[in-house]
Design a protein around this nucleic acid. Structure first.
Lengths: 193, 193
DNA sequence: GGCGACATCTTGCCGCTGACAAGTTAGGCT
DNA sequence: AGCCTAACTTGTCAGCGGCAAGATGTCGCC
C-alpha cells in the first residue's frame, strides 16, 4: 500500500471525505482543518502531515474532482447533449468538488497534479463537443490545435457551466430546483435547434 | 447627509471600497475585517458598527453589485447580444462584486435589500432577453409570469454567466484572456445563428 | 450656550483557526 | 534486536471574528 493505513487506517481519505461533507454543509469558506481533524478523530495537526496546509488539502480535492469529472464525461459518450447533462449532474451530485475546482483562490492552481487532471477533464470535454456540429457547417477552416477551444466548444462549455453554477448558487427560480437535469437538457438543446 | 462623515468621513464607503480592493487582490476567502479596518485607518472593531459582522459587509457589497449590474444591463439596451456582452464586461470589470454576488455562503441571501436588488437585476436581464426570439417562433404559448424564466432566457443567462465565471476562474485557455469581450460576443452569437 | 442623547469609534477580551516546532508512537527493514 | 522513518501528538504563536464596555465627537433642543 502506497500511503495511509498506519495508525488511523487511511487518514488521508478520511480527511478528504470529511472535507466533502463539511463543504456540502456550509460551503468551502467555512472549512476548518481542525474541524476535519475532529471529524476524523485525530489531533489538530494531523492534517498538516498529509497535505501540508489548507491549500494543499483543497488542491488534492480539486485533483480528485477533475479526475472524477473526466471519468463522468467519458462515460457519457460523445453526444453533446448527454455530455452536457453529465457535466451538470456532476456539479449537482458532487457540489463540494465542483465548487472547489472553480475557486482558484482556494488552492494551488499551478500544481502539476492539478494541471494534469484538468487537462484530462478538458480532453473529455472537447471529445464530447465534437458532435455539436452535427447538421452544421464545420467550424473554422483551421481545426483547433492542442488545448485550444473553438467557438462551439466554448459556447457549449459556457452554457453547461453557467447553468450548473447558477443552480448551485441557488439563483435559478422555482421549478428548476426540483429537476435540474430536465431543465439543463432543455437549455442545452437550445444550442442546436 | 444620511450617514457617515462623522469622524472618518465616510467609513462605510471606505470599507466597501477597501473590500473591493482586497478581494481583487486575493479573493473573497482571504478577506479580513481587520485588514479592511487597517486600510481605512480605523480600529479593528469599527467595521462591526456599520455592518454588524462580516456577512453584513458582504451583503452590502452584494446589494451594491446587483444594483450596478442592473444599471449596466439597462444601459446596454434591449439587444440580447449587447446585454450579454455587458453582463460579461460587468463580471470582468467588477469581479469583486460579481464573485460575492454568486457566492451565497458568504452573505445573507435572504436579506430583503439583496432580494430587491436581485429582483431589479433579474428584470433588466429578462428585458434584454426579449430580443432573443428574433427570427424564431415565439416561446411558450403561456408567456412567463412574474420572476419565471423561460427556456430562452435561461439559456442566455447560462451562457453569459458560464463564460464570465470561467473567465474569472482563469479556466479559459490562451487567447481568450486578452480580449474576453470579443470571445464573449462570438460565443453569445452562437445562440441565434 | 450649554446639556443631553445618540451615532461613531476605541480598547480590551475570548475562543477559534492555521501554521510551525518539537516530541512520541508504531510499523517495516535488515 | 535495533534502527529508521512515516504517522501522529502536544504545545505554542499570531491573526481573526465577535462581543462588551468605555471614550469621543456631533447634533437637536431649550
Amino acid at each position: 500500500m502506497a500511503r495511509g493505513a498506519y495508525h488511523h487506517g487511511d487518514l488521508r481519505r478520511a480527511l478528504l471525505d470529511a472535507a466533502v461533507e463539511a463543504i456540502e454543509e456550509s460551503g468551502p469558506a467555512a472549512l476548518s482543518l481542525r474541524d476535519l481533524a475532529r471529524r476524523a478523530g485525530v489531533s489538530h495537526a494531523a492534517p498538516a502531515h498529509h497535505f501540508g496546509d489548507k491549500a494543499g488539502l483543497l488542491t488534492a480535492l480539486a485533483v480528485e474532482g477533475y479526475d472524477r469529472l473526466a471519468a463522468t464525461l467519458v462515460a457519457a459518450g460523445d453526444d453533446l447533449l448527454e455530455v452536457g447533462v453529465a457535466y451538470v449532474r456532476f456539479a449537482v451530485d458532487h457540489r463540494a468538488h465542483f465548487e472547489v475546482m472553480f475557486r482558484p483562490d482556494l488552492y494551488r492552481r499551478d500544481d502539476p497534479e492539478v494541471a494534469a487532471a484538468r487537462g484530462r477533464a478538458g480532453a473529455a470535454l472537447r471529445a464530447g463537443v465534437v458532435s455539436v456540429r452535427r447538421g452544421r457547417a464545420p467550424a473554422d477552416p483551421a481545426p483547433s490545435a492542442g488545448d485550444e477551444l473553438d467557438r462551439d466548444a466554448l459556447a457549449a462549455w459556457s452554457i453547461v457551466h453557467g447553468f450548473a453554477t447558477l443552480w448551485l448558487a441557488g439563483a435559478l427560480p422555482g421549478g428548476t430546483d426540483r429537476d435540474p437535469e430536465a431543465a439543463a437538457r432543455a437549455v442545452i438543446r437550445r444550442l442546436f435547434e
